[in-house]
């Protein structure tokens, strides 16, 4: 089985005890871009202990345990050797995911710890949080990064991104544009990738619905704030660039990766006009933004 995430191709293989079921990634089976990196991913339903030479690098816990019933952590034995671990609080078919990544050999080995040992495990190979954690490394390895943002392509082809922390109106803004005829690239998370010297926004597989693969060159980026009045202010300088960076999905474990990430985000934010955008959630903001030069 093959999956295509942005410029990355995944060649997936499975042990006989796994029956892959594509859910979020169901539409990512054909390349949208020419793949520049290929990972070989092998899946098995046998559990495994974390080798002693791996050190904890990061860990995270969902703010909403009902929607995201897991804890995740990233462990490293060398800059190119990582393990992603997810422990589920209320296990349905799996208790734990342990995924070994070799960023040099471009290989991934995923172990699922099943709750029902004798049944074939029917599972999405990019289920949460494995899919989201892997995307961070795929984007980095191909010179891009992930941003918490919604993105819309307007009827005239102009593509705008709306970035903010959760609950500030990314998906509300996307819906307002959709009502005015624009197409939503994604309403929560975008992969920024440079193609022919131009930054593009790519959709990625989402958790709750089958996202279509899409890409569009980015024209403008808006930092969202909720407000009783609309107010759009063009921004310049490093502080504005860092406000965009603070909405990136970024957990990096080495100087090399951090430097590369910083360079990519600075290049993106130097080349795309940034606006502070205080808005009230009604269609007037769409018209105000359309009148910006």
């Amino acid at each position: 089985m093959k999956l295509f995430l942005g410029p990355v191709q995944l060649n997936l293989s499975f042990e006989a005890d796994i029956a892959p079921q594509l859910l979020p990634s169901a539409h990512f089976t054909a390349p949208l871009l020419t793949p520049v990196k290929t990972f070989n991913c092998h899946y098995t339903a046998s559990s495994i202990d974390l080798p002693a030479d791996y050190q904890l690098l990061f860990e995270g816990q969902a703010s909403d345990p009902d929607q995201m019933p897991y804890r995740w952590s990233v462990w490293g034995a060398a800059p190119h050797l990582l393990v992603l671990v997810a422990d589920f609080h209320q296990p349905e078919n799996i208790r734990k995911i342990t995924a070994f990544l070799d960023l040099e050999k471009m290989s991934i080995r995923v172990h699922f710890e099943r709750t029902q040992l004798n049944e074939v495990l029917s599972i999405d190979p990019l289920l949460q949080p494995l899919g989201s954690l892997l995307l961070v490394y795929f984007a980095h390895l191909t010179g891009g990064f992930l941003l918490h943002a919604s993105g819309v392509r307007d009827v005239d082809g102009k593509t705008r991104l709306f970035t903010a922390v959760s609950g500030t109106g990314k998906s509300t803004m996307a819906k307002l544009w959709q009502q005015k005829g624009a197409e939503i690239i994604n309403d929560d998370r975008l992969w920024l990738h440079k193609i022919d010297k131009q930054w593009h926004a790519l959709s990625t597989p989402m958790v709750w619905y089958a996202q279509q693969p899409m890409t569009a060159p980015v024209d403008q980026i808006f930092l969202l704030r909720q407000s009783p009045h609309n107010l759009i202010t063009p921004l310049q300088g490093i502080k504005a660039q860092m406000r965009v960076m603070s909405n990136c999905i970024q957990h990096f474990h080495s100087r090399e990766i951090t430097t590369s990430h910083l360079n990519q985000v600075l290049d993106f934010t130097q080349n795309i006009p940034i606006f502070d955008c205080a808005f009230k959630p009604d269609p007037s903001i769409v018209e105000e933004i359309r009148t910006l030069l």
């Binding site: 690098l57 990061f58 300088g237 490093i238 660039q241 860092m242 960076m245 603070s246 990136c248 970024q250 957990h251 990096f252 474990h253 080495s254 100087r255 990766i257 951090t258 430097t259 990430h261 910083l262 360079n263 600075l266 130097q270």
Partner: peptide, 19 residues
């Protein structure tokens, strides 16, 4: 990283970036 006349500094804790 210097950008024009300005600079960004990202702290590292045991080489992990503290964003």
């Amino acid at each position: 990283r210097k950008v024009g006349d300005e600079m960004v500094i990202v702290p590292l804790v045991n080489s992990v970036a503290d964003m």
